[in-house]
Design a protein around this nucleic acid. Structure first.
Length: 430
RNA sequence: GGAGACUUGUCCGAGUGGUUGAAGGAGCACGCCUGGAAAGUGUGUAUACGGGAAACUGUAUCAAGGGUUCGAAUCCCUUAGUCUCCGCCA
């Protein structure tokens, strides 16, 4: 959620940048400012009246103590009429506050100045590519066939027990999952991220905090008896840890990591894109989240990109990094880098990570703030301000598995990258 | 799941209708003291939204929401959470 003051003070800039995200409803901007104006006016009016009421109430107390009951009763009458005056103004104020909030929540985050123009994924900017595409054997097969050949994943069983998009991993397939999770978490914690194991169901407030609600409830599984949502990503519980908190500046940056299954309804996707592991309703992911000082967030974003890039390099997979164009970015993001790996048998690039800086868009919703450290030799100077939040996947498992299987297939089995061998316990799957 | 007790500031803790944003203590920050430190001592130490050039100032907030009252941290209702006992259970 954007801050009203930003909209007020940099109106032209805001309009220009919203256009990059294909948001062109300028009237909303003006409407927001108008609403904020009347909000202030009404607030002032109410404060004034309330102040009078409070003063009179004190007087009444003193009059009663002095035994001047008649005077007190007169005062009571005065206060009563002030109060009846106040009531409709109060109602008006809360109506306006609600409307203001509803308008603000519709605005997407402002894209960073480095975000390329564009509307479709084709207009994303390729930042760099890495890793080597190795030539495959002649009879190379896609991962869903490899999964069957080596008895790693059973998709049909998932259909039977739950539905499509809920596979069973089995034997070495299950172990590979476990190895990847363990490896990713170790990699993150040794880089200074604190490991969590969060709840997989969250309440409404949390889903709202990270921006899944109010718009995207259709994408989440919902447990109606308790009003809980199954998390679509660990970002939701992790970021919400600090909802409504004021953090000491000395505690920043806060770095969190967690492995969780992720649940996505993904209504409306079909065809060959969803074949095998390409798109699932339940999948495993290791996530990283940071909360940082606003001035440092873009430096941290680059660090996170390098962090994920090195992880991909250690898996010896061909990858590329994209800077998303305005039209392809998520609602809440100010700058996003996507990571894709090349899955050789499908000859497709698959997204395996998305690293974003949300600036204060989420923290404003969630009221995650920090208190500046006291300046030496003086009192606290700076005001409490919003932190910047960032997150990224490191990494989403299914497509990594797809690429590992396809790219590393050989006549004698699937060769695993060195980094993974000690976790998996063997050098190959056969 | 049943019964009861409880929920106050960074923490501990007082407060059961009238200058209580909230005693007291601890912590923390800054200063004094000291050769330096400890001890001692002084001052300061919540958040949000307003007004004001500023100094400063208004309003709201004692789990959350609502109600009673001229006035609520204090009384009532609802919800959430914590603890104790019982039941159940991986």
């Amino acid at each position: 959620m954007l801050q009203v003051n930003v909209i007020r003070n940099k109106k032209e800039d805001v309009i220009e940048r919203l256009a990059l995200k294909n948001y062109t409803d300028i009237n909303v901007i003006d409407h927001i400012i108008e609403l904020d104006d009347s909000r202030k006016k009404l607030q002032f009016e109410i404060d004034e009246t309330q102040s009078k009421i409070n003063a009179s109430s004190k007087e009444i107390g003193q009059l009663m103590a002095a035994g001047k009951k008649e005077l007190a009763d007169t005062k009571k009458g005065e206060v009563g009429s002030l109060k009846s005056l106040l009531q409709p103004v109060n109602e008006k104020l809360s109506a306006i506050e609600n409307e203001l909030h509803d308008e603000l929540i519709k605005l997407p985050n402002l894209p960073h100045t480095s975000v390329p123009k564009g509307k479709t994924p084709e207009e994303n900017e390729i930042v760099r590519e890495g890793g080597k595409k190795k030539p495959l054997q002649k009879d190379a097969i896609p991962h869903w066939d490899l999964a069957k050949k080596y008895d790693l994943i059973n998709f049909e069983l998932g259909n039977k027990v739950t539905g499509s998009g809920f596979p069973f991993y089995k034997n070495k397939g299950a172990k590979l999952q476990r190895a990847l999770i363990q490896y990713f978490l170790d990699y993150n914690t040794s880089a200074g991220y604190t490991e969590y194991q969060p709840p997989l169901l969250v309440n409404e407030e949390s889903a709202y905090g990270t921006g899944q609600l109010p718009d995207k409830e259709g994408q989440m599984y919902f447990s109606g008896a308790d009003n809980f949502y199954l998390i679509p990503t660990a970002e939701v519980p992790l970021t919400n840890i600090y909802r409504n908190d004021i953090i000491k500046e000395t505690e920043l940056p806060i770095r969190l990591t967690a492995y969780t299954p992720c649940f996505r309804r993904e209504a409306g996707s079909y065809g060959k894109d969803v074949r095998g592991l390409n798109r699932l309703h339940q999948f495993d992911k290791v996530e990283i989240v940071q909360m940082v000082h606003p001035e440092k967030s873009y430096g941290v974003l680059e660090e996170m990109v390098i962090h994920v890039e090195r992880l991909l390099q250690s898996l010896e997979l061909p990858y590329r990094i994209l800077r998303l164009c305005g039209g392809d970015m998520s609602f809440a993001s100010a700058l996003t880098y996507d990571f894709e790996v090349f899955s050789a048998a499908q000859e497709k690039w698959l997204e395996v990570s998305s690293v974003s800086n949300f600036e204060s868009f989420q923290s404003n919703r969630m009221k995650i703030r920090f208190k500046p450290a006291q300046a030496p030799g003086g009192n606290a100077d700076g005001k409490t301000q919003l932190v910047h939040t960032l997150n990224g996947s490191s990494l989403a498992l299914p497509r990594i598995v797809a690429a590992l299987l396809e790219n590393n297939q050989n006549t004698d089995g699937i060769h695993l990258p060195k980094a993974l061998q000690s976790y998996f316990g063997k050098a190959k799957i056969y």
